[in-house]
Computed example of a mutant assay.
Amino acid sequence: MTLVRALVAAACSLLFPGVGHAVLREWVRALFFSGLFVTAIALSFSADQLAAMSSLEGTWTVVTEETSAVDRFVLASIALFTATDALFRGLGAIGRDDTEGPTCPHCGRPLDTDLEFCHWCTTRLEAVEPDSTS
């Protein structure tokens, strides 16, 4: 399930940077990458070009014919970096803290011992009986 979720997050980030991190429930990163991409679009295209992007055909025409190679490279780089980051975060390869205490068996993040579920991935947890030493 983790591999599928990571691949879905990466694919969503290729479509629009930030969406993949929202799938992973990493809200700060989702807002950061979305804001970065929107800012790059605002700096790359003029108001007339943005108005011409009202349809898929118009968007394709503007992106392929009316923008420079540098602008296309910057936008593609942001999307590719975001997708790569979402993939690795989804797989759990980076960004995991070595914390003391129990961790979720599904996502590996630290658990709140007062809850009966993981507040990160909402996996239902079985109650652990304390050891009775009599």
Rank of each mutant, 00 (worst) to 15 (best):
M1F: 14
V4C: 12
V4M: 13
R5P: 01
A6C: 14
A9G: 10
A10W: 03
C12D: 04
L15M: 09
L15R: 03
G18P: 03
G20W: 02
E26S: 14
F32D: 02
F33H: 06
F33Y: 11
S34N: 08
S34G: 07
F37N: 15
V38R: 00
S46E: 02
Q49T: 12
G58T: 13
V62H: 01
V62T: 13
T64Y: 02
E65D: 06
E66F: 08
T67V: 03
F73K: 09
A76C: 14
S77P: 06
S77A: 14
S77M: 11
I78F: 04
L80Y: 03
T82R: 01
D85H: 07
I94C: 03
I94M: 05
G95M: 02
D97N: 12
T99Y: 11
G101C: 08
G101P: 11
G101A: 10
C104S: 05
P105C: 09
P105V: 04
G108C: 08
P110I: 05
T113F: 12
E116M: 12
C118H: 01
H119Q: 15
W120M: 06
R124G: 10
R124K: 15
L125T: 02
E126K: 10
A127K: 11
V128P: 01
E129W: 04
P130H: 09
P130S: 04
S132R: 13
S132N: 06
